[in-house]
Amino acid sequence: MTYSLLLLCRRKAGLTPVEFENYFETKHVPLIRSLTEDTFPIHQRFYMHREEQDGYPAKLLLGSDPNHDALCIMTWKDEAASQEYFARIQEPDSFKQIMDDDANFVDRPSTTMAVLGSSHTTSA
């Protein structure tokens, strides 16, 4: 059975949503891929649509601003595969590179990571 994690991230103060997304896609993901190689998961990233005005409010249809800029879903073939991935990123050199890179674009205290349970998809 697959094993999936949900990661919610907020951009660092002073970055626009576009700068955040660009950094995530062109710098951070390539760094993580290079450090984790064959243990890198299926990694979907969804970016909040934010209006280009003061404060960059989220474009909402219902509710209040979720206060995150990216929702990521990481999926491995099983939990053991995820543990191999985390073992790689926790190696001292890798961990330092990741934390140093995070400091460039992520508000770390607001980051949330959770294990996902069952999944259901409904289509037309």
Rank of each mutant, 00 (worst) to 15 (best):
Q97L: 14
Y85H: 07
F20L: 09
Y56M: 10
Y85A: 02
E91D: 07
S64I: 15
V18K: 07
S94G: 06
R50F: 09
F20S: 08
W76E: 10
R45D: 07
H28C: 12
V106Y: 05
R50P: 12
H28A: 10
A80V: 10
S82I: 02
T75V: 06
L7Q: 10
K59Q: 15
L35V: 00
I32T: 11
P41D: 10
D69S: 12
T26Y: 00
T16R: 06
K27C: 13
T121D: 04
L61W: 07
L71I: 15
I98T: 07
R33S: 12
T36K: 04
M48I: 12
S4F: 00
Y47F: 13
M1L: 02
F46N: 15
D101G: 04
Q53T: 14
M99C: 00
L116S: 04
D102C: 07
A124H: 09
D93K: 13
Y56P: 01
E21K: 14
A58K: 13
T75N: 02
L60A: 11
D54I: 08
A81C: 04
P41W: 09
E84I: 11
M74E: 06
M1V: 07
T121H: 05
D78L: 12
Y85P: 02
T26C: 03
F40I: 15
E79L: 06
A80S: 11
R33V: 12
D101W: 05
F20H: 10
R33F: 02
S4H: 00
E19C: 03
A103W: 12
Y47M: 08
N22M: 01
K12E: 08
E51S: 07
P57A: 13
S119F: 00
S4C: 00
C72A: 13
R108E: 13
N67F: 10
I42W: 07
Y56L: 04
L8R: 09
V18W: 01
S119Y: 00
L15V: 01
G117N: 05
T111K: 10
Y56I: 05
F20A: 05
T121C: 02
S119D: 03
E91T: 03
E25I: 03
Q53F: 01
E25K: 14
S4Q: 01
A80D: 13
P109H: 01
I32N: 07
T122D: 03
L15Y: 00
H68F: 14
M48W: 04
M99R: 10
A81V: 01
H28I: 09
V18T: 10
S4E: 00
L31R: 02
A13V: 14
T122W: 06
T122Q: 13
R45H: 11
D101Q: 03
E84Y: 06
G117E: 01
D100L: 06
K77T: 15
T111N: 08
I98G: 03
R45Q: 06
E51A: 13
A70F: 03
T112F: 04
R88H: 08
L60M: 15
L62T: 14
G55R: 01
Q90H: 10
E51M: 12
F95C: 06
S82H: 11
C9P: 03
P109C: 05
